[in-house]
Design a protein around this nucleic acid. Structure first.
Lengths: 189, 189
DNA sequence: TCCATTGTACCGAACGATTGGTATATTGGG
DNA sequence: CCCAATATACCAATCGTTCGGTACAATGGA
């Protein structure tokens, strides 16, 4: 059995992910990442031999896992459609800190990030699209409609996060979350 | 009368704006901005005495003007609601190069950009919200509903641009543009 | 049991390169 | 001649990265 205590590396990855999601890839300097983790710059290279690129990949992998846990798993799990969507919206709210945190699908498609984490943003977007498409189909939408509805769902999530950031208010994100279930399954359920 | 030939400064601002919208603020180094404009560093500092910050402000001002021209003016101008929205969607498509170009409301709320152009992203978002709210009200929506509809419009624009970037496809943006008029004015004409 | 060896975790100092920015010419058209 | 425009050369600061090293725990053969 694995030890219960989280390794220092996992702690570091969490802090690194937070920093990347706060500053974006390019503005997250090693100095900042060092401060965020409490580890010296040189110590970071112990856990991440390839430097910033490795850190971005680790942060990306963590976010992928969090999205899976908070959104994908609930959606593809058991229970009524309504109940599953309820879980997913709660998960989304937690994942994005109620609208205060940004999404890597956005941040990691800007500047030098894509070179460090090739295909990551696309994979994350496609995973969300797949899950939402499944839900919309289950609610009785024709396959083609389901895909477009799912696309709208992802668009609304990303757009709401951008607008919330620009306005300095979480309200747009909250309202978006409230209408997500209706968008995806209408009155079915 | 102003000379017809565009000044070298205006040319530079256009190129700078393109570079900022391609790379984001932090990854747009002076070296890249120099290459993008074809101007040496000394020339850039001749036109923009405060350096990168001035360039970001100039790029921001240009984008504000372009948004005004392509979206706001058409929406608040004359003609039927439908016709005006048609003009605005055409304007949006041009402004964002059919979904290939990013929006400063997104890019300039990441990293160090906000310090260089304080309030710019918020002002741009609010200008769009105002214009869309006016249109929705004119279409007969109650004031409160109009505001929420306008918010959804901005959210869809920003979200579609993010998703298009992540997937490497302009399709999501195109579909979003197609449903924008219906979102804003329903079947009113 | 002793102790040499190995592995893990970390750090200060320095690296070469690049960052944003400045100072001082030089150029060339009006 | 004037002055906008550009070139050349430079700067301190920071960038991501590497190096040499310390402290300590675990391992394992004599």
């Amino acid at each position: 059995m694995m030890p219960v205590i989280k390794s220092s590396r996992e702690d570091a990855i969490e802090a690194i992910m937070r920093e990347f999601r706060k500053s974006g890839y390019d503005a997250a300097s090693l100095a900042r990442l060092s401060a965020a983790t409490g580890l010296g710059k040189s110590s970071l290279y112990h856990y991440f031999p390839n430097g910033k690129e490795d850190m971005a990949k680790a942060a990306g992998a963590l976010v992928v896992a969090l999205v899976e846990e908070a959104v994908i798993d609930p959606l593809t799990g058991s229970g009524s459609l309504k109940a599953r969507l309820q879980k997913a919206t709660t998960g989304l709210s937690k994942l994005y800190n109620g609208g205060k945190a940004s999404c890597l699908i956005d941040l990691f498609t800007i500047g030098e990030a894509e070179a460090a984490t090739p295909g990551l943003a696309k994979a994350m977007a496609e995973a969300l699209l797949r899950a939402f498409t499944g839900v919309a189909e289950e609610a009785g939408r024709p396959k083609k409609d389901a895909k477009i509805i799912a696309e709208r769902a992802v668009i609304e999530i990303e757009g709401a996060l951008v607008l919330a950031r620009a306005l300095g208010s979480t309200r747009p994100f909250q309202r978006m979350l409230a209408r997500l279930p209706t968008l995806l399954i209408g009155n079915a359920g």
